[in-house]
Computed example of a mutant assay.
Amino acid sequence: MPLIEKGRVVEDRFHRIGDDEALPEGAPVLIGIDRFLREAEALKGRQAPVGVIWPNDRPIGEIEPYLGQLSLIALGFPIFRDGRAYSQARLLRERLGWTGPLRAVGNVLQDQFLLMQRSGFDQIEAVKQADAAAFEEVVHRYSAFYQPATDERPSLLRQRLGRTARPE
C-alpha cells in the first residue's frame, strides 16, 4: 500500500511485525498494541524506533504513559463508516500533546483524506496507488471551513473575527 506523508508518496521505513515474529535489529518497527503493552519495558532499551497500531475501540488515554517511547502512532479504520480514529487523532494532538507522526491505517478512502489531515493525521496508508496520486487535489478541494481543526487553516469564524491563531 502506498504511504502518503505530508502530501507525497514516501517509502515506509517502519516494518509491520506480527505478535509472534522476531523484531529485526536496528530497524524501525510497527507492532500491535497487545505486543507493545506486553513488551513495553523491554522495548525501552531498543535502539531503533518503535511504533504502535492503536485500535479505535480502545480508549486513547491509555497510551499517554507510553508516548515518550513511541516514534509513530497508527490509528485504525476497520471499516469506512467507523470514524472513531478521527476523535482519537484530535485527542492525541490537542489533549495529549502528541507531536510525532500520526498514521491512518486500514480502510482509508480518498474522500476521507481531507478530514484525516484536518484531524491531525500526517501519514495515510492509501488503499490504491490512484488514491495517493489524487491526494493533493483532494486536500485542497475546499478553501473555507466552518469547524476548527488541528491543522493551521482557520475556521470561517476565526477569519471573520480576524484571528488565525489557535486560542491558548
Rank of each mutant, 00 (worst) to 15 (best):
D111M: 03
F14K: 05
A130I: 14
R58S: 01
R141H: 07
T150F: 03
R158L: 04
E41Y: 10
I17C: 12
A165F: 08
P49H: 07
V138I: 13
P148M: 12
D151Y: 10
A104S: 11
Q88R: 13
Q159G: 08
R166G: 01
D82C: 15
P55R: 08
A27P: 00
E136T: 05
L157C: 02
G106L: 10
R46G: 01
L37F: 06
G97Y: 11
G120E: 04
V127W: 09
E152K: 09
G106I: 05
Q112E: 08
E137K: 12
E168A: 15
Q47K: 13
K6L: 11
P148W: 00
K44E: 15
Q47N: 10
D34W: 01
T164Y: 10
D122V: 10
P65C: 09
R163M: 15
L114V: 04
E136S: 05
P2I: 03
V108E: 04
P101E: 12
R35D: 09
E11D: 09
D131Y: 12
A165K: 14
A126P: 02
E94N: 15
L102F: 14
S143V: 14
L75R: 05
L109C: 09
E39Y: 03
A130N: 13
G162Y: 08
P24N: 09
S87E: 14
G7M: 06
G106M: 03
G32S: 13
A89D: 07
Q110R: 13
G106W: 05
A104C: 07
Q110E: 13
P101R: 15
G26L: 01
G7S: 04
Y142G: 02
Y86E: 07
V50P: 03
Y86N: 08
L114Y: 02
P59N: 12
R8W: 00
G97A: 06
G45H: 02
